[in-house]
Design a protein around this nucleic acid. Structure first.
Length: 415
DNA sequence: TCTGGGGTCCTAGGACCC
DNA sequence: TCTGGGGTCCTAGGACCC
């Protein structure tokens, strides 16, 4: 029998917690992170004070302001939170030999083999030893960073994840090996990782609102049978955690896998071709800079286009591996020509780079920085030190909510 | 007074090759 | 002048997660 040795640590209302560290006047008051009142956008994090009112992450700011008019609304500062997350990870690594970043506010830990380290005289005492260690670890994170978190412990990743949700706020919950069904069967199907809004609707329509009811679904090839199998799999002990982290903090790594993308929703949908081109140019500039920073090459460029009516399409093309802005720009322009039905107003533009590889693997091909203009090298260097926004190029116009101070400057400015 | 931005993974059809 | 089967790559779309 496999014991409950996987833990999932989830930082409680992470963005709100960091904003409160930076601005203590936010402590104890209802907070919504995502933007100012009236901005186009969604809630990325909200404090516990506004949850009873129905505010949830993902909902539009307009809706959130209607539900919680008294809350303080603050913009999301994406560049701000990463270092706090990295600090948490380094603390966790002092407690557990295997720590994986799942997202900016979520980590998986494997305590297998740590029972004696944490004082268990024999295997039977292992559960209590691990649970005690996890409680002390959670408190250490809070004491050293000021960030509250919750931890679930189980034999599978899915159980640990669901348990961390049940442990909130600032708690620890262990689901002992063998007690998985007792814990999970009564939960709504939506609580199972992998069941999203679409699958939930399918299950509700079939009269299956809770996970336990999935045990009654006969095997087969149907969609619902697939979900039932997914649940049974989630109840079984997980193997070792995957080797690699999720991309949350891969910015400086030599690792080149997965994909990179940047996209922008415009405050007012664009119809003028020159503005669409300028916006695309800005996205190409940003995403290729990130790629070079990561030290990778991309073979595939995909353009994403969303029209005013929210219909969305993607058009991609593959070529030789590159990280040069000019190459990607050429492809992106071609794709725009293919994809964009002129006269339709563009709500969102995105550029994704995928089929990534490390430069070493294609050493015979043109590499940066030799293949790039010297000015580009200098710009990269400044941005590497001070951040992307440290330099604004003339063509990469911004289109934020009207705000005089955000007007794009043709000259370099410190962000 | 709708619906952000960054990702991962899966599926399905067609091209192409043997 | 009718028509196999398997494998892999490319592309487009969609579900899902935070």
């Amino acid at each position: 029998m496999s014991a409950a040795r996987l833990a999932c640590l989830d930082l409680d209302t992470f963005f709100v917690s960091v904003e409160r560290l930076l601005d203590p006047t936010l402590v104890g008051v209802p907070v919504v992170v995502g933007g100012r009142k009236g901005d186009r956008g969604v809630v990325t994090s909200c404090s516990y004070e506004v949850r009873p009112l129905g505010v949830r992450s993902g909902m539009s700011l307009v809706e959130a302001a209607r539900l919680a008019p008294h809350a303080v609304f603050v913009p999301t500062r994406h560049d701000t939170y990463g270092p706090y997350s990295a600090r948490v990870k380094s603390i966790l690594e002092a407690w557990c030999p295997v720590v994986r970043t799942a997202s900016i506010d979520e980590f998986y830990l494997d305590f297998s083999g740590c029972e004696r380290l944490y004082g268990a005289a024999d295997a039977a005492g292992g559960d209590a030893a691990i649970e005690g260690a996890v409680r002390r670890m959670r408190e250490a994170v809070q004491a050293e960073t000021g960030l509250p978190s919750s931890v679930g412990i189980g034999a599978s990743r899915a159980i640990a994840k669901m348990a961390s949700g049940r442990a909130k706020p600032a708690g620890v919950l262990m689901v002992a090996a063998g007690a998985e069904r007792q814990f999970a069967d009564p939960l709504p199907v939506r609580k199972l990782p992998g069941i999203g809004p679409v699958a939930e609707q399918v299950l509700l329509a079939a009269g299956l609102p809770t996970l336990g009811q999935l045990h009654e679904v006969p095997d087969g090839a149907s969609r619902i049978a697939g979900m039932a199998m997914h649940y049974r799999e989630a109840l079984r002990p997980s193997g070792p955690l995957p080797e690699r982290d999720r991309p949350a903090f891969r910015e400086h790594d030599e690792v080149a896998e997965g994909s990179l993308s940047n996209e922008r929703t415009f405050f007012a949908a664009l119809s003028r071709p020159d503005l669409v081109r300028d916006a695309l140019r800005g996205l190409v500039e940003r995403v290729t800079w990130r790629l070079r920073r990561r030290g990778g090459l991309a073979r595939t460029v995909t353009l994403k286009l969303r029209y005013d009516d929210f219909t969305t399409l993607t058009r991609g093309r593959s070529g030789p591996p590159t990280n040069a802005e000019g190459d990607v720009w050429e492809l992106a322009q071609e794709l725009l020509g293919v994809a964009w039905a002129r006269r339709r107003r563009v709500r969102l533009l995105g550029v994704q780079l995928s089929n990534l590889s490390a430069p070493a693997a294609v050493a015979q091909l043109p590499l940066f920085p030799a293949a790039r203009p010297r000015a580009g090298v200098a710009i990269d260097a400044v941005r590497d030190r001070f951040g992307y926004e440290a330099i604004r190029l003339g063509t990469a116009t911004t289109d934020r909510a009207p705000s005089p101070r955000l007007a794009s400057a043709p000259v370099a400015t410190r962000g």
